[in-house]
Structures are given as structure tokens and as C-alpha cells.
């Protein structure tokens, strides 16, 4: 725990307190109503596991944190490829796309911002079709090149922004990179939970009925307001933001999280996938946990980078 700044340790303690409270709440509910709250129980149990893994990932060392985030990217990209139609001739191309994951996170680890920011949008954008041309199959070429690159952009490039928070110059922020990462991931996930909860309690009018009938305006509004409030409360301890900047960061994460979520839902609908797996009990697959982050990571990163770095 040597590297973690005090505010991050307090923030983590806060999350454990929140989890403890939720677990107790489910116990009380079970006792009172006699119903078993299976899904809620599963969800909270999975949160415990994810929070413990996240704690270890950021507490041990910077290298471990980056490897952890690279692994999340790997799982998400693999999931994406397992959902979309792919061509047999593109096996080698897909192999090289996987190789791009450690390379991208290596740029993060050595803090080479220039390379980090162009490697996937420019170089992989060119390498994918170039390698495909060598294979020679033209049927479905554009679709394959497009989907592969889209997958790399969302699951690797976007998510790697979360990792780059860790290597931003330390002197600008007392809580360090871990504080920024915590802020981003906590708010994104908290916003997800808040939108879900507000939606369950008061949801009536769907926002995008064709994509995701369960997402309601009430849930969105409640979630975003909750995220803004949470951002305003914790930003002074974890980020270099002023109070006004913190409010806008909360708004950005609240709206971005919603958009990331519905965009991935739209993709799933497009390719006819109902659920995206059972990796995390009560939550579905890895995609259901990182969908919001694919939007909030780059949005939050560039907002912060523009204002303070």
C-alpha cells in the first residue's frame, strides 16, 4: 500500500463501507420480506469481488495496475470478437489486433503520450486493412476492416485512457494517478448503479425505446444528478478540479456513461446478442461492466488533460 495517497485509501474505505451497508441492507430486506433478492444479492457479491480485485490492482504497483487494465481491455476485445461475425481469412489480422493491446499499454507504461494517442487511431487503422489485403479476400472487406478497428477503438484505445491517468505528472495532483483513476471508475460505476436505481424506482418514459427499453428519462436524470453530486463531494480530495470543474466532470461522466451503455446495447441488438455472457454473476458479461467506461474514459481524460496538464 506504500504508493497509495491517503485520500485514495480513504476513498477505498468509503467504497467498502458502502458495500457493507448494501450487504446488510439486503440481509434486512430478506429478513423483513421473506423474498430472497437473488439478483440483488448476486450483484452485490460480484461488486465485492470486483472492488477487492480493483483494490489489489491499484495498491500493489503501477506496473500491476497497467497490466490489470490491459487485461480488462483484452477480455473486452475478445468478448467483442466473439460476438461479431468475423471472416476465417482474417484470423491473422485478428491475431495482430490482439498484439496491439500489449503494445498500446506499453506506450502508457513508458508515458509516451504522442504514440499512445495515435497508435490505434492511425497506425492500427492502416495496419489492419494492409494485413487484410495480403490475405486477399475482398468479400466483406470493408465490413471486416471497419468492425475490427471499431472494436480496437472502443475496447482498447478508449479504455487505455483510464490507464494513462496513472502516468500523468504526479506533482499536479496530490492524490496521484490512482486518485484520478479511482474518481473515473467510481463515478462511472456509481452513475450506472444510480441510473438503474432511479429508473427502477421512478422510471416511466424510455429515452431510446428502440435500443434499450429499460433506460428511462427519470433514471437518466436521477443518475446524472447523483453523479454530479458525488463528483462535487469527492473531487477536492482526489482531483485537481475546482468545484465548478468538478460539477462539469460529474455531468460528463453521467451523460458519457449513459451513452456508452446504450451504444454497446445498440451493437448487441444489431448483431442479435441478447445477453453478453455470465462472467460476472448478476451483472452479465465483461461488456456490461465496461460499456460505460468506453465513453467516460476518453471524455474524462481529455477534459482533465485540457484543463490541468
Amino acid at each position: 500500500m506504500s504508493d497509495l495517497a491517503m485520500p485514495v485509501i480513504w476513498a477505498l474505505a468509503g467504497v467498502y463501507a458502502l458495500l457493507l451497508f448494501s450487504s446488510l441492507l439486503v440481509k434486512v430486506l430478506r429478513h423483513r420480506t421473506g423474498s430472497d433478492y437473488r439478483e440483488l444479492g448476486d450483484r452485490i457479491r460480484s461488486w465485492w469481488v470486483m472492488v477487492v480485485i480493483f483494490t489489489l490492482a491499484i495498491a500493489v504497483s503501477l506496473t500491476i495496475s497497467i497490466i490489470f487494465l490491459a487485461f480488462i481491455s483484452f477480455l473486452a476485445f475478445k468478448k467483442f470478437l466473439s460476438m461479431i461475425p468475423t471472416r476465417r481469412v482474417d484470423r491473422r489480422v485478428i491475431f495482430w489486433a490482439f498484439v496491439a493491446i500489449p503494445v498500446q499499454f506499453y506506450w502508457v507504461a513508458i508515458g509516451w503520450y504522442g504514440m499512445f494517442i495515435i497508435f490505434i487511431p492511425v497506425f492500427m487503422f492502416l495496419i489492419i486493412p494492409a494485413r487484410m489485403v495480403l490475405a486477399g479476400e475482398t468479400d466483406g472487406f470493408l465490413k471486416a476492416a471497419g468492425t475490427l478497428h471499431w472494436g480496437l477503438m472502443t475496447t482498447v484505445f478508449s479504455l487505455s485512457h483510464a490507464a494513462f491517468l496513472l502516468v500523468l505528472p504526479a506533482e499536479k495532483n496530490l492524490a496521484g494517478g490512482a486518485g484520478l483513476l479511482f474518481f473515473l471508475i467510481f463515478l462511472t460505476q456509481f452513475n450506472d448503479v444510480a441510473q438503474y436505481t432511479w429508473g427502477k424506482l421512478f422510471g416511466k418514459n424510455p429515452v431510446v425505446p428502440k435500443v434499450s427499453p429499460k433506460k428511462t428519462k427519470e433514471g437518466l436524470l436521477g443518475g446524472v444528478l447523483t453523479a454530479v453530486l458525488a463528483a462535487w463531494l469527492i473531487a477536492p480530495y482526489l482531483t485537481p478540479f475546482s468545484y465548478q470543474e468538478a460539477l462539469a466532470a460529474g455531468l460528463l461522466i453521467g451523460l458519457g456513461g449513459f451513452l456508452g451503455d446504450v451504444v454497446i446495447s445498440a451493437i448487441k441488438r444489431d448483431i442479435g446478442v441478447k445477453d453478453s455472457g455470465n462472467l460476472i454473476p448478476g451483472h452479465g458479461g465483461i461488456m456490461d461492466r465496461v460499456d460505460s467506461l468506453t465513453f467516460t474514459s476518453p471524455l474524462f481524460f481529455h477534459y482533465l488533460h485540457y484543463l490541468h496538464y
Binding site: K78, K79, S82, R91, I94, F95
Partner: peptide, 18 residues
Amino acid sequence: HGLGMALPKGDFVLVPFF
């Protein structure tokens, strides 16, 4: 299902798929 995509007959490069 899927293992033939990860490592089909006659190929030696493993490509990860769930």
C-alpha cells in the same frame, strides 16, 4: 463451439475467442 476458430485444423497461430 469456437475452438475451431481459435485454432483450426492445419493452423498453428492461436487466436483468442471466448
